[in-house]
Design a binder for these strands. Structure first.
Length: 479
RNA sequence: UCCUCAGUAGCUCAGUUGGUUAGAGCAUCUGACUGUUAAUCAGAGGGUCACUGGUUCAAGUCCAGUCUGAGGAGCCA
């Protein structure tokens, strides 16, 4: 009867002293042939199991090694030791699964994140990854709760798409055709996709936005939350080939409403984690502080993780236009001393160094930048009255960079068609998209939030590969 | 994809100007110890020096290429 067990989190929280309990979990350490630190993943805190002399024979004692799984029946008692309030005095210990200590890669010692990445199938059993993935779960749950409370419809947009017009990046091809060069070809030498599974060229989605807009034109407000794929050869601590994205899309909504929602959303997620994952966040804060001790003074952050999150919760995001951002950069001492690697002038796409200066040096808080030049933004963004800028907005977060990208969409058919023509996007194939503007078009807006970047921001993990269970990055697809 | 740095025991690292049998801490194993907190103490085992080729009497050490990882850049979320 496995369902009679009590989870360690519950046992440590509730007053069950004196009661007989059944617990199950994995051995973290076994000290003095007497004290087992048992963890079942419900909390970072271990339960201390006390094994009295003579309870087990020598053979069984030897099998209680790091990583082994146990079933323990015993009485919950107040602990005589200092590290914990409650412990379990074992009456029966059953070894559910042995773990050869010589071969088990997780040792009771500190491991580097790089090493743990290589054994990602076991790293959930560490304190750090236990905390990270409980926080990730909480954020995912909070996302649905936030939108559900607001009456948004959760729309599942397709993973496989034939649309190649998003322009959001390189795509992974989806095909059942042979890849050894024997696939049927057209007269011009190109591959004949009429013979392919879908009868046309298909890819993994790079964004659910265009389909999301279709939903918003009926439900008023929808959101998507699903995997997204980019075949970019990006080798950085903040890019993945497979990542999860949240994309709300709202009808009857302008850029101002869009910004308000995004800010409220981010704060809601942070607050949810603060309320529900306090212990995990405190552990992660401590871990981060220890890691930063190794860094030179100027690379350390001014605040701890908890203080950073509290500050974001308690302060309005700074809102500036692109034009104002350029002015701030041009007037900065940093610019005058020629410390920027890339030159600053109106019309450029802001470089990482520029974004970091604005967020980390100038404002020292999340910044929303709006009104980017039309030339550097996507075709669907709404043209402003000046004819030069579009109603785009990016939210830049300290330490992460761009965490949200969004815009008010161009709802005026003629302007949208003109823009597509200018940017050489075929309007015939996108007819389904343009139908939303033909039949009852309304002002609407939306944004995309990279889920892993949000988890990074809340957990303080510096490498995005450490906030997704099994990272897919260039030259890496294990597990 | 570009720039920089790195790859030595299970893990984290040291290894001098190229020169005898490649070291340490932790982990593991053996023993001791019954109120320990990543326990402690004593002892033991453990190496394709990333791979391929080259220079040399001699390569962990020098050179070239390849692979992998990290940091930064670009692209973006």
């Amino acid at each position: 009867m496995f369902n009679k067990r009590i989870k360690i989190k519950e046992l440590l929280q509730t007053e069950v002293i004196g009661q007989e309990v059944t617990v199950m979990g994995w051995v973290r350490t076994f000290r003095n042939n007497q004290f087992i630190a048992l963890n079942d993943g419900s909390t970072n805190n271990n339960l201390q199991i006390v094994v009295e002399l003579g309870l087990l024979d020598d053979d069984t004692l030897k099998r209680i090694s790091t990583g082994a799984s146990l079933k323990v029946i015993g009485h919950a008692v107040a602990s005589l030791g200092k590290g914990q309030k409650i412990e379990v005095k074992a009456k029966l210990i059953e070894i559910l699964g042995d773990s050869d200590a010589e071969k088990y890669p997780l040792q009771p010692k500190k491991h580097s994140l790089e090493f743990l990445r290589e054994i990602a199938h076991l790293r959930f059993r560490t304190n750090t990854f236990g905390a990270v993935f409980r926080v990730r779960h909480a954020l995912a749950f909070a996302i649905h709760q936030f939108f559900n409370q607001k009456g948004f419809v959760y729309l599942h947009t397709p993973i496989i798409t034939a649309s190649d017009a998003e322009g959001a990046g390189e795509m992974f091809k989806v095909t059942t055709l042979p890849i050894d060069g024997t696939a049927d070809k057209n007269e011009d030498g190109s591959i004949n996709y009429k013979e392919d599974f879908f009868g046309k060229s298909t890819n993994l989605t790079v964004s659910g936005q265009l389909e999301g807009e279709l939903g918003a034109m009926a439900f008023s407000e929808i959101y998507t939350f699903g995997p997204t794929f980019r075949a970019e050869n990006s080798n950085t601590a903040r890019h993945l080939a497979e990542f999860w994205m949240i994309e709300p899309e709202m009808a009857f909504c302008d850029i101002e409403d869009n910004m308000n929602l995004a800010e409220e959303f981010i704060k809601y997620l942070i607050q949810y984690a603060m309320d529900n994952n306090r212990e995990d966040l405190e552990f992660l804060a401590q871990r981060l502080a220890e890691e930063e001790k190794q860094l030179p003074q100027d690379k350390r952050s001014e605040w701890g993780l908890i203080e950073k999150l509290e500050f974001v919760l308690n302060n309005a995001f700074e809102r500036i236009t692109y034009t104002q951002a350029i002015t701030i950069l041009l007037e900065s001492n940093h610019y005058k001393k020629k410390k920027f690697q890339y030159d600053v002038q109106w019309g450029i796409d802001l470089q990482s160094e520029h974004e970091r200066y604005l967020v980390e040096k100038h404002f020292k808080k999340p910044v929303i930048v709006t009104g980017y030049p039309a030339a550097i933004k996507a075709f669907y963004m709404r043209m402003n009255d000046d004819g030069k800028t579009v109603a785009a907005m990016d939210i830049l977060a300290p330490g992460i960079g761009e965490i949200v990208g969004g815009s008010q969409r161009e709802e005026r058919l003629e302007k949208l068609e003109q823009r597509m023509k200018d940017m050489h996007i075929p309007t015939e194939e996108m007819s389904w998209y343009l139908d939303t503007r033909r039949f009852g078009t309304v002002p609407h807006a939306g944004f995309g939030l990279g889920f892993e970047r949000m988890v990074q921001f809340v957990s303080g993990m510096t490498n995005i590969r450490d906030v997704i269970a099994f990272a897919r990055t260039p030259k890496n697809c294990e597990f």
